[in-house]
Design a protein around this nucleic acid. Structure first.
Ligand code: FES
Ligand code: FES
Lengths: 158, 158
DNA sequence: TGGATTCAGGACCATTTTAGTACTAATAAG
DNA sequence: CTTATTAGTACTAAAATGGTCCTGAATCCA
């Protein structure tokens, strides 16, 4: 359904680790060893995260990576966007007006809305929540599809 | 973010057309001409939809395709599942226990939940809604992530 | 200063997925 | 029997993904 690339999963794992207490700064090598992911791959992911501004890096001896901001302020959507880029839902959503089907097709716009809604929901899901999933501390979410539809979440008392 | 393959988009377009008033039965050729999608591709998509039980087909002269059930009872999730298959969110979700990272990784389960939630939301979004998106008739959605989190949608008065 | 460490930026390749095509068989109508 | 139409499947081409490697730049420290 919703497919998350391996790279994104790696990113989440790594970020979650960086978010741990006292993790502070870690080198790519440390992270690779800890995570059992290949070093080049870890490097690549971290570089992307750096470009996206989710982690800060220090070069040179005693360098490494650490979170750019607190885990509270990093959302699942941030991670997705960072690693997978702002990819459109359909071809048409990228080049509007160029699609032959556009006249017939009323769907594009709706998928778009759904996409947007999901994105917004994920924007409310914090790294903290991802990391502590088992603890179950997941906060309230509000999603809005288009001008009319709202999706809202709240914590149920189990 | 959420990426929908072209094929899925085609499927939606075609289904929406079949759902139109008085559409009844259409041949693959008609649908191809109407939609401006290549005939072989249209064929392929329709065959998949047939296998998934979303459309029924009649062979031979005067044959064609039509919806297997009313557009009310076909959900966005059905379409996704039909065309894209029941693909897991991450590698690990498919082969649990085989992943080296599993010990470190607390994320998998959460992504899983998110995925599930989205799927459920989409299960409440009907073909009817997709087809009439512009009319804005989008109903209430309820999403549940795990035992604790609930995402709920409702129609806002604009 | 110079060497060691560590990230930055690409280029690059292998594999998998996706999209699309083609061909043959089956089924039904007339 | 002939024609219309879907079913099944195999195949190819193109793109995305996952992963590697190399070269250069920053930083630290002796
Ligand atoms: S398929 Fe192009 S606009 Fe819907
Ligand atoms: S990456 Fe395999 S369990 Fe999370």
């Amino acid at each position: 359904m919703l497919r998350i690339s391996k790279l994104t999963d790696y990113a989440t794992v790594l970020l979650a680790h960086l978010a741990e207490d006292g993790a502070g700064q870690r080198t790519a090598v440390e992270l690779a060893e800890w995570s059992k992911i290949g070093l080049p791959t870890v490097s690549k992911v971290l570089k992307e995260l750096q470009r996206a501004g989710l982690v800060v890096s220090t070069r040179g001896a005693r360098g490494g990576y650490s979170l750019a901001r607190s885990a509270d302020t990093i959302s699942a959507a941030d991670i997705l966007d960072a690693v997978e880029g702002p990819i459109g839902l359909t071809e048409c959503s990228i080049h509007p007006g160029q699609c032959e089907l556009e006249s017939n097709c009323r769907v594009g716009r709706t998928w778009q809305r759904v996409n947007l809604a999901i994105h917004q929901a994920l924007a409310d899901l914090r790294l903290t929540d991802l990391a502590n999933a088992e603890a179950g501390a997941i906060p309230e979410l509000i999603i809005r599809i288009g001008p009319r539809l709202t999706i809202r979440s709240r914590t149920e008392s189990a």
